[in-house]
Write a protein that binds this DNA or RNA. Structure first.
Lengths: 130, 130
DNA sequence: CTTTAAATTAGGAATAATTCCTAATTTTGG
DNA sequence: CCAAAATTAGGAATTATTCCTAATTTAAAG
């Protein structure tokens, strides 16, 4: 891996400027809008590389295509399983995990990258009642 | 929704007997093995219904197709993003959330169904070093 | 600055997972 | 038993993502 290319750089720029948790498709369009020529396969390939490098994070969605987020600051996500809405929250894993006996146990098995909370948001709950 | 059908019942049975976090494809095969005739679209449709009813839980995977788990007891999951291995752990959201200020905040926005921890397991970590 | 090797790209084909469609069958409730 | 509602099978369609290859870009060495 050379670890440099115009396209890879453009994707990372887009991710830095965009805190909207875009899908691969959206990233593709955002890069095109900017200036840069890019193909969709290049977007997917580089997204995966950037995830591996730990520059961006993949958000596994229940509804719709997966989303991505730039790691601008330590934070976690709560995702509505009905509508896909994403809430950022600043639950610092590193700080909190020390206090939690169970998380300590997990860390023997796995090197934690992220915690995602899945649930149903207020809007979807009230829609259901109607 | 009538809330009953042989096929829906068979899927739920398979999920009860199987604590292996099967994919939709695997559920399909398990139902066929048992006895029951079923089509793949029926499997997918009923899986979604059972998720909605809160009988089973969807595990959004980073690698490979999504998996499902019967809600036999309150537990959460840690998933390796490289190989897809799943660790069950008995972190009781309900007990723990009371003690955590930040989780309380989230609960104002979202009705928590599950917490999934994503990371890299020991095996994958050591493979990477080789 | 060339030259060469390695990495990356575009673009489309291929694959994989899931949803959608419709006519036939099953289930429910009176 | 009958009619209405729900569900099914089976395949087509769709969606998201990965894979393939020849051409281009980047890096590194002389």
């Amino acid at each position: 891996m050379n670890n440099y290319s115009k396209q890879r750089e453009a994707i990372l720029d887009v991710m830095k400027e965009n805190r909207t948790h875009p899908t691969a498709e959206e990233i593709y369009k955002l890069v095109l809008e900017k200036e840069s020529q890019i193909s969709k396969s290049t977007v997917y390939r580089n997204i995966n590389i950037l995830v591996d490098l730990g520059k961006i994070r993949k958000l596994n969605m229940t509804v719709g295509p997966d989303r991505y987020d730039y790691l601008y600051k330590e934070h976690s996500h709560a995702i509505c399983e009905k509508c896909g809405k994403i809430f950022d929250f600043y639950y610092d894993i590193d700080k909190d995990k020390i206090s939690n006996e169970l998380l300590k146990q997990i860390e023997k098995n796995i090197d934690i990258n992220s915690i995602i909370i899945y649930g149903i948001c207020e809007d979807c709950k009230s829609k259901n009642k109607e």
